[in-house]
Each structure stands twice: as C-alpha cells, then as structure tokens.
Simulated assay, not measured.
Amino acid sequence: MTPEQRLARLGLVLPEVATPLAAYVPAVRTGNYVYTSGQLPIVDGKLIATGKLGAEISDEQGSDLARICALNAMAAIISVAGELSAIVRIVKVLAFVASTPEYTNQPAVVDGASTLFGEVLGEAGRHARSAVGVPVLPRNAPVELEVIAEVR
C-alpha cells in the first residue's frame, strides 16, 4: 500500500502548505534531504489552539495538535519532493512543546506526530526524535514540529 493510499484509508488529506509567518520558506531540499521549517497546528490558515500543556491544553489535545503539525510537515515535504511516495525515510523529528515548568509529558504529546508518520509511511516513518519543553512558541502555539526527511 502506498503512503497516499494509507493517508486516504485514515480519512486524511494533506493540507495546502502553511504560509510562512515571516521571512523563510516552508521547506528546503538539498540533495536527497528535505528540511522543514517549524510547522504549527495550522488548519485553513488559522492556528487552531493556543496555550500550554500542563495548563490550558490537555495531553490528548496536544497529541492531536502534534498530528496536525505532522500533516503540515508532510505537505511541506511534498511541496519540494513531489509526492509522499518520494519519502524514503523520516530521519529526524524535533518537537517543541509549550508547557508549564512542572510539565514533563512532552514525549507522549509528540507521539501523536510520530504515530501518524508511521501510519502513513510505514517503516519509512520511524525516526529519531527530540521532544523539548519550552516556555512559549510563536503565536502562543502549543506545539511546533521540524522534520528532516530523506527523499528520492
């Protein structure tokens, strides 16, 4: 089954690439690698949640937001690689989770993104990862994701 078929089976559609918030591009390809800029949980051009994990945002909400970031990252990757089937492997995911000082469940939140990469890309979606707690993200977003992907 192709990644496109898996995505459809999940009832998901890749969004349009999110418009950058400042002077950068959503993704850059160099050789066989694509580096995405930070992807926020933006749907139809709007940030769909604000706040911090451990305060306004629950773990479940955070995980869902991380999935949206992953969808946006895949859209950014295919904007320079052509199609999901061009992804050889998600190499590295760097996730930032806006959270209160005592909050320590960042890895579980980021599992939302990691699980989606696996569901869509199969073995190629397994990756190295960092999940970092931070005090604030752009526009008060709860989650931000950067991805490095190897492509054909």
Rank of each mutant, 00 (worst) to 15 (best):
K52D: 10
K52A: 13
A55T: 01
A55F: 01
S58W: 00
D59V: 05
D59R: 00
E60Y: 00
Q61F: 03
Q61C: 04
Q61K: 11
G62R: 01
A66G: 09
A66L: 06
C69N: 02
C69R: 05
A70L: 10
A70S: 06
L71T: 12
L71A: 07
N72I: 08
M74H: 06
A75M: 02
A75T: 02
A76E: 10
A76N: 13
A76C: 10
A76I: 09
I77K: 11
I77V: 15
I78K: 11
S79Y: 05
V80M: 08
A81N: 12
A81R: 02
E83S: 15
E83G: 11
L84T: 02
L84N: 07
A86K: 10
I87G: 12
R89Q: 15
I90H: 10
K92F: 14
K92H: 13
K92W: 11
V93F: 00
V93H: 00
V93A: 04
L94Q: 13
L94G: 08
L94Y: 10
L94N: 14
L94C: 04
A95H: 05
F96P: 00
V97P: 02
A98L: 03
A98H: 03
S99R: 08
S99A: 15
S99I: 01
T100K: 03
E102F: 11
E102N: 06
Y103F: 14
Y103M: 00
T104I: 06
T104A: 13
T104L: 05
N105H: 12
N105I: 04
N105Y: 10
P107E: 12
P107D: 03
P107N: 06
V109T: 00
V110M: 04
D111P: 00
D111Q: 13
G112W: 08
T115Q: 12
T115D: 13
L116I: 04
G118F: 05
G118Q: 10
E119R: 15
V120A: 03
L121I: 07
L121F: 08
E123D: 14
E123R: 13
A124T: 12
A124E: 12
R126V: 15
H127M: 08
A128R: 14
A128N: 14
R129W: 09
R129E: 09
A131I: 08
A131P: 06
V132R: 10
